[in-house]
Design a protein around this nucleic acid. Structure first.
Lengths: 109, 109
DNA sequence: CCCGACTATTCAGTGTTACTATCTACTGGT
DNA sequence: ACCAGTAGATAGTAACACTGAATAGTCGGG
């Protein structure tokens, strides 16, 4: 993809991951694969893992280590109450920005 | 505002400014005032000036120095062909991201 | 029995971006 | 002379995504 997406993802990728986790618990490798499938073709794996560590340290998610049939144990993340609150805030912020941009695109005031 | 907006603006603020300039030429102080009026309550002035210098160095805008009745001369920026192309690309990138996020919000696949 | 393929995570170093805070500079009104 | 308003520049900081590589575990094939 382009540099533009990279820069645009700053601040939104975190919300995207939290939104995914609000549907169901998931682990890093799974999330990366899911994102790639959905068109975010070149989000680096390292990026997701770093992000997960960040949101874990901020207390937005709970973590559980689950043995895998294949490969090393998975770190399964699930959204907690604080994370849900943060996600709600994220959607409000996103709406704010999206509305204004849409208006700009239409050439409105 | 919050830290969330700050991070989300990375990558979008540039597009916002280019979109403004696609409507009409403008100078830094004017753009800052316009943004504040439109709800981006605390975008720092320094941020806009730095951004304008950046897009100027990338050749996305043309610059003209215009004497002001009040204060020092204004640097009036206008979008050129290259900037227009970059803006088009920006909107495509934005649409891509906005679509996927909207789908995520609806809880869809 | 080792080697590659797949699964899964970690980490050090880099570049871009917006923010803070401060500084310069010009005008008009008191 | 001073101050508010207009206008721009800049040095330093923090956050975030990327690159690239390393580590670790399981499995099947030669």
């Amino acid at each position: 993809m382009g540099k533009q997406v990279t820069e645009m993802l700053k601040g939104t990728l975190e919300g995207i991951v939290l939104a995914i986790l609000s549907g169901r618990p998931a682990y890093g490798y799974e999330i990366t694969a899911w994102l790639r499938e959905k068109g975010f073709s070149d989000i680096a794996e390292g990026t997701i893992y770093a992000l997960l560590i960040r949101i874990e340290q901020r207390g937005l998610v709970d973590v559980e280590k689950v043995p895998s049939e294949k490969g090393p144990p998975r770190k399964v993340y699930s959204l907690n109450a604080q994370g849900q609150a943060y996600l709600d805030e994220f959607w409000r912020t996103w709406s704010f920005l999206a509305e204004r941009l849409e208006r700009l695109r239409e050439g409105g005031s």
